[in-house]
Write a protein that binds this DNA or RNA. Sequence first.
DNA 1: TTTGAAATTAGGTGCTA
DNA 2: TAGCACCTAATTTCAAA
Lengths: 152, 152
Amino acid sequence: MQLDEIDKKLLMLLQTDSKRTIKAYANDLELSNTAVYERIRRLENKGVIAKYVTLLNKGLIDKAFVVFCHVKLVQHIKEYVRQFEREVLQLEEVVECYHISGDYDYLLKICVKDMEAYREFLVGKLTALKNIGSTQSSFAIQEVKYSTAIQL
Amino acid sequence: MQLDEIDKKLLMLLQTDSKRTIKAYANDLELSNTAVYERIRRLENKGVIAKYVTLLNKGLIDKAFVVFCHVKLVQHIKEYVRQFEREVLQLEEVVECYHISGDYDYLLKICVKDMEAYREFLVGKLTALKNIGSTQSSFAIQEVKYSTAIQL
DNA sequence: TTTGAAATTAGGTGCTA
DNA sequence: TAGCACCTAATTTCAAA
């Protein structure tokens, strides 16, 4: 997918705030309304723009307790791996999950209310899954940076 | 902040897709246009709704190489810690950074084009910072789950 | 530039503390 | 009676062609 400099600037603006008017983006880019409108349509159709979402303040909705959990599986048979990944998708507390290189197989980011809620998640849901070997939890002491924007 | 069941449903809808019309949310919630409009306004003013953003498809913009980097500082004097955190905020490749418990001090999530770009980031920017002790990088083999939505 | 649709505002009702 | 959440309807603004 080829993006010119205007596309990149536009995408940076959209990543920062998706609720401004097209006219506002057009002003910033020194383009016409229509030109910007068509670029956005094109970027949506090509799939570069994946979705428009609302971000919440975790502190105000009682989900400020963030934990990173490294998970090791017992066996790495394709079938078991697939099953684990399918099950993780269903766990509402898990906001991110990556299959990673290194000592552990997976890294999960979990958002819950507090330590008690995390314990319930860990004992009642995560380690209750088949094929989980060991886990190691790191607690977020502070969120230094959180961004959904990718620099272009 | 007190959220009733309607607020929670509304926030789930907004987290999933922020570009639908108010009428559409109103239909789903079986409320009037105005009632939904005023709830959204209230949630914005209270700060529960932090912002509206556009999410991009990392694969289509050459930033599909995701790395988790654990960082240990040499010294933990408040001044040095603050400086490190200030500098991390300026690193455009770093999309998330958490001060965490455990063997390492920080966990960074980094999005770049490829291994070569990561090497340049690591050598040219991250380990060039003052007070960095050791780092350990884990590469994302696969993104199993990525969500900005928090379950309410 | 125009037009239809959407967001926003205005004005009023009923419930609850 | 004050405050809140909701309604319908009028108005303004914007996306879309």
